[in-house]
Design a protein around this nucleic acid. Structure first.
Length: 431
RNA sequence: UGGGGUGUAGCUCAAUCGGCAGAGCGCCGCACUGUUAAUGCGGAUGUUGGUGGUUCGAGUCCACCCGCCCCAGCCA
């Protein structure tokens, strides 16, 4: 008997096939019974009629439990009542792996904390499968976008000497070299690679030992960091916009079923079109003051301020050219207003907040040295990075896209912890 | 690290003024030939997060401790 995946059943109507998967629901009415199962490609209901199967098969149905792994054999029939449009008239039933009665997840509401304790099982639920598929599509879209534009993917190290940004570092012993730190960014390596390959991007995990406990933070998250030689800050924002539009278009094209499962309002995503507004920080402060914010020029913008700025926009919004003091040392001074640097934050609509931080990099050796000293950063750790400004320095710009934040926005999930298979948070290292 | 919540059955939650510890789901049994988280009837299920205090009596009031959630900050 040929094996089939549930998604392939339309090609087997009228034929007898065997489908393997896991029981999600069992229903019985005395002489007729139903098995609903999942195989990762779809959902299938099999029907058993007592008078049409062997007594052994009927008895075996009685032993089934939720999440038992089974193989069902029978004829594929078209049935408009079924979500997938097909049904199996069962003739044979085999138990591949039994499942005891105390399976922790029931077909009902559970609290998030409980579900995260059981994340290894929660992954099996339709909503979680849909999120994982959208994430996968976004990842593939990003690779396709950069590949199509001639970018080289560079895999940067995860174990590093103390280098990167200022926030918390995870450390571990590293042979005779003292401590190694888990990478918080691949950017500095990306800059080195940009001078070798022109246009590059990194795609990998990053680690932040910040004691953040919000729906927007993970201690381990995936970041995409392009770095482009000869791009300025405006080119940089255009690249961000093009990439986000590419991602949204791709998900709308290929993930309709998943978005429906997630009950995502797709009109919100369909309304995402270029160009995205580019608001100067200085103008943003004036807008915020008019809206009643207490923000003063020089302050970094808080989450509440960011929400006010995105309010009323259907697309992501760029806020650019922040005051120097609010941003990292490597950002290039703005020649038009040296109090500020050439950078941007990209704020997603619908309250999802910052999904990208980017900047043109400081390419002047004296200026970057000055900023490094102002920030009291350990100069020797940056020797190779500074040398990039000594030997053939070049204008360049790049950004970091937070993958889980992007997935959360596109899926419309309330918390980014659902947007990665096994989230790492302050109080969660297991499973 | 600050502010606000919350903790009761396997899960989701209720318990009025301090007065017998409850319901739904799930589970077990029975019935049912088209169910969609099937339905109907019956049944079992507790260290009320912990320690101490007030009281004739504490899930409820008080003190301390612990866990978690949300918000802020940090950032993607």
């Amino acid at each position: 008997m040929p094996f089939a995946r549930i998604s392939e059943l339309p090609n087997h109507v009228g034929q007898s096939v065997t489908v393997r998967g896991w029981v999600t629901h069992l229903r019985s009415s005395g002489k007729i019974a139903f098995i609903v199962m999942r195989d990762g490609t779809g959902v299938l209901q099999s029907v058993l009629v007592k008078s049409q199967v062997t007594p052994e098969t009927w008895e075996r149905f009685g032993t089934l439990t939720q999440e038992a792994c089974i193989a069902v054999t029978g004829e594929v029939k078209v049935d408009a009542r079924q979500p997938g449009g097909h049904e199996l008239g069962l003739t044979e039933l085999t138990v591949i792996g039994a499942s005891p009665l105390d399976y922790p997840i029931q077909p009902k509401e559970h609290g998030v904390d409980y579900l995260l304790d059981n994340r290894h099982f929660w992954l099996r639920s339709p909503r979680q499968v849909a999120i994982a598929r959208v994430r996968n599509e976004i990842e593939q879209a990003i690779h396709d976008f950069f590949y199509g534009r001639g970018f080289l993917r560079v895999d940067t190290p995860i174990l590093t000497a103390a280098i990167g940004e200022r926030s918390g570092l995870f450390s571990t012993e590293y042979f005779e070299e003292g401590n190694a730190y888990l990478a918080q960014t691949g950017q500095l390596y990306g800059e080195a690679a940009a001078a070798a390959f022109g246009k590059i991007y990194t795609f990998g995990p990053t680690f932040r030992a910040e004691k953040s406990k919000t729906r927007r933070h993970l201690t381990e998250f995936w970041m995409i960091e392009p770095e482009v030689a000869f791009n300025d800050s405006d080119d940089n924002m255009q690249l961000q916009e093009d990439m986000l539009l590419f991602i949204v278009t791709r998900v709308l094209e290929r993930c309709r079923a998943e978005l429906k499962e997630l009950e995502r309002d797709v009109t919100k995503l369909e309304g995402v079109k270029g160009p995205f507004p580019r608001i100067d920080y200085t103008d943003a402060v004036e807008i915020l003051k008019k809206k009643g914010s207490a923000v003063q020029w020089g302050d970094d913008l808080g989450a509440e301020d960011e929400a006010l700025l995105v309010e009323g926009h259907a697309t992501p919004v760029f806020i650019k050219n922040y005051p120097k003091e609010a941003k990292a040392f490597y950002m290039k001074e703005n020649p038009a207003d040296p109090r500020t640097v050439l950078c941007d934050d990209c704020l997603a609509p619908e309250g999802y907040g910052e999904i990208i931080g980017g900047s043109q990099r400081e390419d002047d050796l004296d200026k970057i040295l000055h900023r490094l000293r102002e920030e009291k950063l350990p100069e020797p750790a940056y020797d190779w990075y500074l040398a990039l400004r000594k030997y053939g320095t070049f204008p360049h710009a790049g950004f970091g896209l937070g993958l889980e934040r992007t997935v959360a926005w596109i899926c419309g999930t309330p918390h980014i912890r659902e947007c990665i298979a096994f989230p790492r948070m302050m109080h969660r290292l297991k499973p």
